[in-house]
């Protein structure tokens, strides 16, 4: 119950602050206080249901599973086996053992298969949670990304394969296709644009909009009552783009995340956030 009150308070705080932005009727001081309240709220594990996913993810991370009956605790997310602090801030990145650039979700699937001997077909089937269907991936991402809170997005471009992935992600961002000729850039390449009433972040230039966005995923989406990862956000944008459904954890989505994170370099990670 206190959790629900927290969310209502959060919505109220957000609405109040948005009202301030619209009318400019109140002082900067007051709006800053509202923002502080909002920040405190999303950092409050009791007010944000996304933290339930964090807790479930922590359990899953330590749980022995698969034919080898071991946990994921020796999985190397780029900072060394089992080292979680700050790992998410540097993903996607190149992994020599797999000889691939991977985002967090691809890497987790890889660890499940190689370390745990887990058949990931079921995990992939439950990639997005729904009523009565939990998602291991959403929970694990929430737990792991949360361990990068307070760190800044630090895209990795030292390896040639990382630079290639970045360049392909950028090309993909501007690629026009589908029955409506849309690209990501149709909706996300100019500041201050909207679709209906929804504001569209501009990712074409590096800086604040990309930082605020990428630093706030995974997020708890109030409209879906679910913790969502960047894989889900991109899946939804492909839908709006009238493109075919992209395969979960496919390399094109990793390339896009690489590009978006480069635009968002330096952005502070505060997750799970909570959004519409």
């Amino acid at each position: 119950m206190s959790r629900m009150r927290g969310i209502l308070a959060l919505v109220a705080a957000a609405a109040t602050c948005a009202g301030i932005a619209g009318t400019m009727a109140q002082t900067q001081d007051e709006s800053e206080r509202e923002i502080e309240r909002y920040r405190a709220m999303i950092n409050d594990p009791m007010a944000n249901p996304g933290y339930l996913a964090v807790d479930r993810g922590e359990v899953l991370w330590a749980q022995a599973r698969g034919t080898k009956a071991v946990s994921l605790e020796t999985c190397d997310l780029g900072e060394g086996p089992g080292k979680l602090e700050g790992a998410y801030a540097k993903l996607p990145r190149y992994f020599a053992d797999a000889d691939r650039v991977m985002d967090l979700e691809q890497r987790l699937l890889w660890c499940m298969e190689k370390i745990q001997g887990l058949d990931t077909a079921d995990v992939i089937r439950r990639r997005f949670s729904g009523p009565g269907r939990a998602s291991d991936m959403e929970d694990l991402v929430a737990f792991i990304a949360n361990k990068s809170n307070g760190t800044r997005i630090e895209p990795q471009t030292a390896h040639a394969r990382e630079r290639e992935m970045l360049a392909m992600g950028e090309a993909l961002f501007y690629r026009r296709a589908g029955a409506m000729d849309f690209s990501c850039a149709t909706c996300h390449a100019e500041p201050g644009k909207r679709i209906r009433l929804q504001g569209l972040p501009d990712f074409s230039t590096p800086g604040k909009q990309a930082q605020e966005t990428m630093g706030s995923w995974p997020t708890y989406r109030v409209s879906q009552s679910a913790l969502r990862t960047m894989q889900h956000r991109l899946w939804d944008c492909f839908r709006q783009q009238r493109w075919p459904e992209p395969a979960y954890a496919s390399d094109g989505l990793t390339a896009l995340q690489m590009f978006l994170n480069v635009q968002a370099a330096g952005g502070e990670i505060t997750v799970p956030s909570i959004k519409r």
């Binding site: 957000a14 602050c17 948005a18 909207r194 504001g199 972040p201 909009q209 605020e212």
Partner: peptide, 9 residues
């Protein structure tokens, strides 16, 4: 869209 308004804010 509260997230976008909030974002602008």
């Amino acid at each position: 869209s509260f997230s976008s308004k909030l974002f602008r804010t």
